[in-house]
């Protein structure tokens, strides 16, 4: 039994009324085992982000199922659903859109602890938040600012910190470093690697940067027009068969 599994998932979006439909995902099956890091490669618009949202329970498939430890997440209720949402966390592509603009960064980071770790005292939460802020390479003085008042790279580190605070089993990272400078990309990736070896978390790592996927992941899926067209081993290029995949890998 996989930790998290998508079984023949489809997602259709209506465009301009019921007649026109856009099939973002078609019959997609992927699985993620405990402790595994799996990459998703594909050109822009191929359905990577839609798949990530459905895999993380942020969107519902129009056909097929997502199974968490063998149970269909559509049937999870109450405490089970909350447990799933806590164990499967999502690092967004656009960090500022993922934060409440009226919150200070301190509030942004306190919120998941207040919801999910009610047993902690305020002082313990503050300590966790400040410790995590330092671990993602930011000065704690930044916590009094609002999302608007920090750079894109700093915002992405705050979002990463917010995810890591909940010590999730699965982290879905959707282009989580593509907007960052190389030095900060390296800091975030190194941080994710340290978290991975310390906690054994599994990753679904979505990226258009084939070098990073090769560096970070154990195996990968390749998407085109809403389908999985190829599965690759760790050394991507050695196992790539289709011309499309070779273009994705060789485009660098």
């Amino acid at each position: 039994m996989s930790l998290l599994e998508a079984v023949r998932v489809g997602r259709v979006f209506p465009i301009d009324g019921p007649q026109k439909r856009f099939e973002a995902l078609k019959d997609v099956s992927i699985h993620l085992e405990a402790g595994e890091s799996v990459g998703v490669l594909g050109e822009s618009g191929s359905g990577k982000s839609t798949l990530a949202a459905i895999f993380g329970g942020l969107d519902r498939p129009t056909s097929g199922q997502v199974l968490y430890k063998g149970r269909d997440i559509a049937t999870l209720k109450g405490g089970d659903w909350k447990c799933f949402r806590q164990s499967v966390q999502y690092i967004f592509q656009d960090p500022k859109a993922a934060m409440n603009p009226y919150f200070t960064l301190r509030q942004v980071l306190m919120e998941p602890l207040k919801v999910n770790r009610k047993e902690l005292s305020k002082a313990q939460m503050v300590e966790l938040v400040e410790d995590m802020t330092a671990r993602v390479g930011l000065p704690t003085s930044i916590l009094s600012r609002h999302p608007d008042e920090v750079s894109g790279g700093q915002a992405q580190r705050i979002i990463t910190a917010r995810v890591l605070l909940l010590e999730p089993e699965v982290i879905i990272a959707d282009e989580c470093v593509s907007a960052l400078d190389l030095s900060i990309q390296a800091q975030i990736i190194n941080l994710l690697r340290r978290i991975r070896s310390a906690t054994g978390a599994s990753f679904l790592f979505i990226s258009h940067d084939a070098d990073l996927v090769r560096y970070f992941c154990d195996r990968s899926y390749v998407m085109l027009h809403g389908r999985i067209v190829e599965e690759l081993g760790q050394d991507l290029s050695a196992s790539a068969k289709s011309e499309y995949t070779r273009m994705l890998l060789g485009g660098l």
Binding site: P139, I142, S183, I184, Q185, A186, R193, D211, Y215, L252
Partner: peptide
């Protein structure tokens, strides 16, 4: 430091990526 980072294209999985430690002072 920036130039040496951008030179990386074959990444060694056994070690951390190069980074400029710390962050831009606030």
């Amino acid at each position: 430091a920036l130039a040496s980072l951008s030179g990386r294209r074959s990444l060694d999985r056994t070690r951390d990526l190069d980074e400029i430690g710390g962050s831009v002072p606030d």
